[in-house]
Design a protein around this nucleic acid. Structure first.
Lengths: 248, 248
DNA sequence: CGCCGGATTGAAGGTACTCAATCCGTGTGG
DNA sequence: CCACACGGATTGAGTACCTTCAATCCGGCG
């Protein structure tokens, strides 16, 4: 029963890419649905491609009015919430094919910042139209609900991580999750480049950047991974997974 | 801009109770929607009242198949996720009028446990029927989306809490949130009974029970609150709020 | 070359945890 | 009715882990 470790979310929903989705890489939205090419065309028709985000650019700010969800077509983003005194909490790193902006449905205002981690493109999905279409297409409706639910489950996994794991467990969970998501996209699960700084990882994991760095170094000394700044190689997957299973 | 402090979620959605909702106290689901009495009747018709949950009873277990969302009609519940090694993380305390079970939409299997904190009743809302009806009633559809989005925002607030606050800030946030939700239901925001143990509060806040107890004692010594085990009186709201604003 | 930002590493300190003793309210049984 | 046991809460002392502060390293770029 590995379900408890929800940080390593199942990747079934993003397992393959539908070739229908030509205009926009709507992995997460379209892929596991059984839609006719015609319906698929209609969904594509309502998306608006937006290019030219580079590292540090905001997709939306906390407080911006809500119009659209965004499907990440290429690149990656982080989302963060800010505390009054300036403390920030990174709430997620989103990569190609994932959908962000669902926090805003509740109040019609975005409740977090979304910031590009690298050169990125997104497809805007006007939410009113998405709702209208999902009234006609039950499988789209169900799928939209699943995406939102998955976000809830993902957040619960992070709560478990932040609430009850020690530093090295948190980093192990982070690396394993990252690795799995890359694998689901056809990239190497054992060798990859991190797009985020130690500070950003720390903010996500509820740790200071020095602690993150030390945990990386420790894993390297143990021969579990190979770290050269932001390029990571997983040498011993089993032992990395073992970091999670037991309290140490 | 108090939005950053999402733990104190806006209570607009649960601000008043619709008297239409007779069969079941569907505060959260029905209340802010503009539905005809006839439509309201239809929603009521698909709910199934379930009585007789007492403290410790499971509403659902992690792994149970998903059929329904549950609207809490009376009483309160906690939701928790379990780690393989037995560690648990309480992910939320839900009170009357709130809706739980949305974690399960994603995989058609519940991903957490829901356990009664006291004698409680719920209304089961078969999800298939809820979806079907929301295809016909756009305002119900929109509202369902808002409820799910609100859950996401709430979880982000908890992530901020777990990732970047110290013990006393966490407890202050917890008390203020609890107080607000009681106020929204017409109860005293300054004097109330906690339904959960120190251990459960600790699990929710990512702290050990002794730390929770010490934080309570400290607030009491400071004259901010009055604590007698599980009965709480907030004496100085401003200073309790101030615990959150500054890092101390 | 030298600067810059990010990353690493070390040492000292603090916060929350662990372990343990005690308290207190409730319920049970003599 | 009191004695006792029980579970939850409080409090204390010592410890572990993470943070803080600071120095150094490293790679990229002007």
């Amino acid at each position: 029963m590995t379900k408890a470790l929800t940080l390593q979310q199942p990747v079934t929903l993003t397992a393959q890419l539908r070739s229908h989705c030509s205009t926009c890489n709507l992995r997460e939205l379209c892929m596991p649905i059984d839609l006719s090419p015609n319906d698929m065309q209609r969904i594509n028709a309502l998306t608006m491609l937006k290019r030219g985000y580079s590292r540090g650019d905001y997709l939306y700010h906390c407080g911006d009015p809500f119009h659209s969800l965004y499907a990440i077509r290429s690149g990656s983003f982080k989302t963060q919430v800010l505390h009054e005194d300036g403390r920030e909490q990174v709430t997620g790193f989103q990569m190609t094919g994932e959908i962000i902006g669902m926090d805003a449905i509740c109040t019609d205002v975005h409740t977090c910042d979304a910031i590009a981690m690298e050169s990125s493109e997104v497809c805007a999905l006007p939410f009113n139209q998405l709702e209208a279409m999902s009234r006609e297409l039950p499988s789209l409706q169900r799928h939209l609900h699943k995406i939102m639910s998955r976000e809830i489950v993902r957040d619960q996994g992070i709560m478990l991580l932040l609430g009850s794991m020690r530093a090295e467990e948190r980093l192990a969970a982070f690396l394993l999750n990252f690795s799995q998501r890359l694998a689901a996209r056809g990239f190497s699960p054992s060798q990859f480049q991190l797009r985020m700084s130690r500070q950003e990882i720390g903010s996500y994991l509820g740790l200071k950047l020095e602690t993150v760095s030390r945990a990386f170094s420790h894993f390297q000394n143990e021969g579990i991974i190979n770290v050269k700044v932001r390029s990571i190689e997983i040498l011993d997957l089993a032992r990395l997974q073992a970091c999670l299973k037991c309290s140490n």
